[in-house]
Design a protein around this nucleic acid. Structure first.
Lengths: 235, 235
DNA sequence: TCTTCAATAATCGTATACAATACGACATCT
DNA sequence: AGATGTCGTATTGTATACGATTATTGAAGA
């Protein structure tokens, strides 16, 4: 039971449940999120659902329109670019911060993680994606800077959502070799190189998996983002 | 009347009112924030106050302890350092992003702003501080990156709170000349130099106005942060 | 006088209630 | 048929209600 009757924890459970559901695409971009049905499903009142939706809206995973409720966010391409730019910047900071400061234990943990990524590379799709993401979160954690961690987490989740919309189907997001190189640079204490590697790593994630490469098939695909960002509701 | 009976706007009004009150130190760090009295004062129910407090808690301006309510945040020195570090990083990104991209109109606006800062420098204390802060917000706005703007705003407000606690009384936070140099570098399109200037500018804000230079007078000052961060309630 | 404890008051966490708004279906008119 | 107006339903925005938890006060005992 993660439920726990402790105060405030149920609210957080709702938040996390919705968050995961969105990132894993159980709730697809643009999908409506009525407070009633969610509350009923999760066994809480609208109050807590509302709280969670509000928080998700701040983080950009949910869109909240006055008097017409919440829906899973459907970022435009410009917003997507913004998010990726900021994320690259943030993770560059992470890299600079970490260069030379990595303890032996931390380096070992990262390498173990990369080995896992390698193992999962060929087979399980979603598992591979999850591991790639976690690598970056782990790095942010290791800075010991809570605010930096929060921002990286937020940007990362939004990136997941963006890739769900604009990314090609099964691009394995991160190249394992690039993670390896990065660890090496961090270990060597070469901050500039680490930042540079991180920057290009994330840049290549974009070009490899994302933005523009996807040739939209027909007008419906092209219009979908606009319709949804205006609150319209295509079938 | 900023009140406006439009839905959702009252909630935002509450949020903004509390935010300003905290930043302007009408509500001092550590001060309790009971939902009831705030709601009564602002003419709304606890629901909306709660919403606002939740949001402020996420942004780090308010601390929220389970079953014992909200209080104005009292960041520790480590948290303060984290926030300043992230802010410096973010604003470096702003500088890099803006270098060479500044339109003539934007440059003019910035220069006009700096002239205002200069005017206000000698006289009004709080006014000078406000203008210094706004300069940085303006820069972030000019990137056109909404997420970057949000993060800079958030970090800035937290910095205000931090300076309220640990800063020396009337340090004029930003040197006008440094702002001028920055604009020049942006205009020249020298991204590296702009980033460097920004970095040192913010670094000097810290050393000039802040952290450690303040010789605490007695034990009470030294203990205050610890007491408050533990939820204790000194008179 | 200082501690301990119980009763009371204050405040929070969550659910529910009610009014306001938006969406959809049907009827009406041209 | 197509457009337009009206009613009913669904869903939101906000307030209120109620049980639970924490702070406070005051009295009794050491």
């Amino acid at each position: 039971m993660t439920d726990s009757r402790q105060p405030g924890l149920r609210a957080q459970s709702v938040y996390r449940a919705l968050r995961r559901a969105i990132i894993e695409q159980a709730l697809k971009p643009g999908m409506k999120l009525p407070e009633d049905s969610i509350g009923e499903q999760l066994g809480v009142s609208r109050t807590l659902v509302r709280e969670a939706l509000g928080r998700l809206a701040i983080e950009g995973l949910v869109e909240l329109k006055p008097n017409r409720g919440a829906s899973v966010a459907y970022p435009t391409l410009e917003e997507a670019r913004d998010v990726f730019d900021v994320r690259r910047g943030l993770e560059r900071l992470v890299a600079e911060n970490l260069a030379g400061r990595l303890t032996a234990a931390q380096a070992a943990e990262l390498e173990a993680h990369v080995r896992q990524e390698e193992k999962a590379h060929g087979q399980d799709g979603p598992e591979s994606i999850r591991l790639s993401g976690e690598f970056h979160i782990k790095l942010a954690e290791m800075t010991g800077n809570a605010l930096l961690l929060r921002y990286v987490q937020e940007a990362s989740s939004r990136c997941s959502l963006i890739l769900a919309i604009y990314g090609r189907p099964h691009s394995s997001e991160c190249a394992v070799s690039e993670h390896r190189q990065l660890i090496e640079a961090l270990r060597a204490g070469d901050g500039a190189r680490a930042a540079h590697l991180m920057d290009h790593h994330l840049q290549s994630v974009v070009t490899r998996a994302l933005l523009t490469p996807r040739a939209e098939r027909d007008i419906r695909d092209l219009l979908a983002p606009y319709a949804l960002s205006e609150g319209l509701n295509p079938p």
